[in-house]
Structure formats: structure tokens, C-alpha cells
Amino acid sequence: MTTFHAAVVHPDQTVTYCGTVDQGHVDAVRALAEPEGAPRVVRDHPEQPGTLFVLRDDGELDWYVPSEYVPFGAPDAPRGGPARQGGAESALETDTETERAADSADEVTGPDYVPGAIRFGNQMIGGAMDHPENPARAVWHTTESPAGGNFITSVATFLMKVASEPQVIYDPVTDRLGQFGPMSRSARALRNDGSRRTNREGRVCIQVEVLGRAARPFTQSFDPATKPTFRSLLTAMRAHGIPDVWPAGKPVPSATSPMPRPRPTWQGKGGHFGHCHVPGNTHWDPGAIDTSLIPGAPLAPATPDYDES
């Protein structure tokens, strides 16, 4: 029977190794966490079959890794398992220190950080844009998880562990926002379109993972006028030159909807896109969000009424 390393990833990103468990234990965990409305949510690793995470609303993450893999913090874990933890959406796109230094002087037209954003990880998820001559754009995703509580921390930790970070993660229930890196650099939440790196398309490509599910659009009962952090995010996008338009049309309403992804539109037009609109990708999120609200008409930005550091 397959055995698994078990670990807990804490909100401060430290890891406690808990030893090994058997397949029966993992099957029981999955059965308890998968039903709709369960207090925990299972997410599978996109590139390591059998590896799963359990998202907890207290911000901690349970991590189960088949014994052939080597989880961080396992002192006696066997060697020789697959080492790369690249995300399902793209290969790892890190830069050398030389490249970081070279492009650090690139002109930035808007802010790199939204006021009040929680900073997750080391803030070095991507690099310079491949096609800065093309217009600025934003891409909207959904995490396919609950919102509220402390899920923003749990999901952020999951995204870092599978190397699929956007620049921004947003909770529409709490109006909390986190960042994995500056907006002027690339993210890694999209699959490449062949050899063309979709994460690095345009002057900026600001990607947002919204806590929620595509099947239940997060704009239902959502009022941007009551969400000062969200308004600050949209203000930052506009400052980077992203126009208030959806060049590829509204995001699709279901997984079975036609999802044409025209390359000329993606590469040549600026504005807002859904994950469903990006060439080379297969996901249908963020669902049928209300494009009259996102981005909607500009509202005055506001300072969040909490202090996160």
C-alpha cells in the first residue's frame, strides 16, 4: 500500500513534518474534505500525482506527499523522486539575478503594490515581460475554493507550493488582498501557448485569483462601493494603462460553453480577460461575472480600514 509523508504548512510558511501515513488515512481525509460545505477543501497537486493539500480556513495547510516524492521538512524522506514543483499553468519562470538587476530599471507606469496588500512569499515569482510593446491587460481567475475566514492564507500557501502564483489574490467576502510579486513583473498562473509565454504578454499582465468558484460568480451580491481594497486594485490596474474593456467578450457561463481564444485579440488588445479567453489554456474561470461591475466605472480609491504587513 502506498505510504505518504504528512506535514503541516503554517501561515508563516514554516513546515512541521508529521511522519508517514497510509493510503487509508489519505482516503479518509479526502472523503471528509470533499463534500460541498465541508470545513476543509482538498486540492490536488497539478504535477505530482497523488500529492494533495487540504485547505483549512484557519490558514494552515495539510500536505500529503507520496513517499517517492521529497517534501520539504521530511528529515528521512527517500531521495530520487521528482523534484520540480512547477504549477499546472506554466513552467517555472524565474529569472537570474543578472536579469533581475537589468530589468529593475524598466519604467513602471503604475504602482507595484496595492495599499494594504498582504505580501506572500519572497515576492520574486516572475520576470520582465516578453512583449512590452503589446497593450496592458488583466486576467481574472477563480481559486475554486471557499472565500472568507482565513482561506486567503490557505490558498496562497497552496499556490506557492505548486508554483502557480498570480500577482494578486483577492477575497471578495473580507476585501482582503494579497500579492505574490510586483504588478510590473510577470506571474505564473497561465499555461504557455506553445513557445509563447502567456504570463509575459503585454506591458503588464496583472493576474488576479479571486477566492470563489466559477459556477457561482463572485459578483453576485458584490458591491465594489463597499470594497475599498478592491477599488484600490482597479485603480492600480488603470494606472498601468489597462482599459476598462473586455476585448474577448464576457467570461463564459459554464465549462461546456464555447471558448474561442483568438490569438490576435489576446496579443494585440488591452483590457480585461478571463482565464477562459487565454490561448493555450483550458480552464473556464472566472465564470459569468458581471462585467458592468468588473471593472465597472471608476470609483474613488479608498484606504483599507485594516493594517496588514
Rank of each mutant, 00 (worst) to 15 (best):
V65L: 03
H141K: 04
A91D: 10
G287C: 07
G181P: 04
S145E: 02
R40W: 01
T109D: 12
V65I: 04
E144G: 14
L190P: 07
Q179Y: 05
S292T: 12
Q13K: 15
E97Q: 15
Y69F: 13
K250L: 00
L159W: 06
A248V: 08
D22W: 07
I294R: 01
A117V: 04
P146W: 07
P286T: 09
H277D: 11
Q85S: 10
L233Q: 05
H283I: 03
H45G: 04
H5V: 01
S309H: 15
F218Y: 10
D76Y: 06
P301A: 10
P301C: 07
N281L: 00
E68M: 09
M124W: 05
G270L: 12
P217A: 09
F230P: 01
R188W: 10
G116S: 05
R213W: 06
D12N: 11
W284R: 01
P253C: 00
V204I: 14
P298Y: 07
G110S: 09
A101F: 05
D44W: 08
Y170V: 02
E34S: 14
V21P: 07
R196T: 12
A91M: 06
M259A: 15
N199P: 11
A156G: 10
D76R: 10
V70H: 13
I125E: 12
F230N: 03
N281P: 02
V26C: 08
V245K: 12
P35V: 08
H275R: 12
